[in-house]
Amino acid sequence: MSAVVVTGTGLLSPVASSPAELLAANADESPPGPQAWFDPVTLLGRRGWKYLSPATRYLLGATVLALADARLEPAGLPDESMGVVVGTNFAARPVVARIDETVITEGAHMLSPAEAPNFSVNVAASAISMRYGMRAFNLSLTNPMVAGLESVLILAASIGRGRAELGLAGATEESPIPASAGDGACCFVLETVDGADRRGATGQARVAGGFSRFIPPGGDMRAVRGPLTRLLASTETGQVPHVVVGQGDLASSVEDLAERSAADAGISLARRGFAGADGRYFTVSPMLQMAGLIATERQGVVIAVSPHGNLAALRLARW
């Protein structure tokens, strides 16, 4: 099987709208204000997004940037060769809250029929397929915090199975807390090396492995240690950049485990962290770390952990 590589990156967040801005941003920087950082007209044009939710608009905006970065024109490719996988936790939550408020206070007849479909969390991912004709498949994943990273794993695996030749893996969020810093989106174009070579695209990094696991209440990490050690052992010897995304005791324990697993694997880790490493952008946060590693060292390991116990890990290798 041809290896799967990242050939395009697109990101939108309150503190960065490009990999270069991500590297320049202070990881703890506060946002300039709700949505002041995102102008849909610039990225999406004047039409076609009015009835879409903010999270869908962010995702489409990040898609525009990722496709441009990959120099990919989907219209020129077979529609059944392109898949979409998107992770999110809260893309629909604020919309659903607004709809429920209308239903309770005014009644369902006061809802906009054009906006009614937005209660469904898969509308965001589906908008990509509708706009770009990516019809191999379209998946929405929703595990807390880790669903974005899982979108990369599942898209790469699905390309490996031959369900698509290339596609978009992304994450998007509209924070459930109004005016908070949790909005944003991030997308990557993934394709086979052979496919990238055929169209003259440059691989930014290779998707070299990854896994998902669950850490049960109490924090027993025996199920994580084996796959994490194997993942790290497959890296080139030397110092491997890594980011653990999350907060609290569980994230600290995962950080400790990563150090011990690296020692088992005979390598050392170098801690990195870009805007959102604390998990403030939910599923988008791990994707921003992936974008940061690609923009700097083109390799590394991203580990995301949710307070519930979900864990996903992804390894990038130079290409």
Binding site: V121, L141, S212, R213, F214, P216
Partner: peptide, 17 residues
Amino acid sequence: LAAEFGLTGPICSASTA
């Protein structure tokens, strides 16, 4: 479900409506 039944393997939540 994973926490309730002590499942520590792969975990997936699909939400394609």
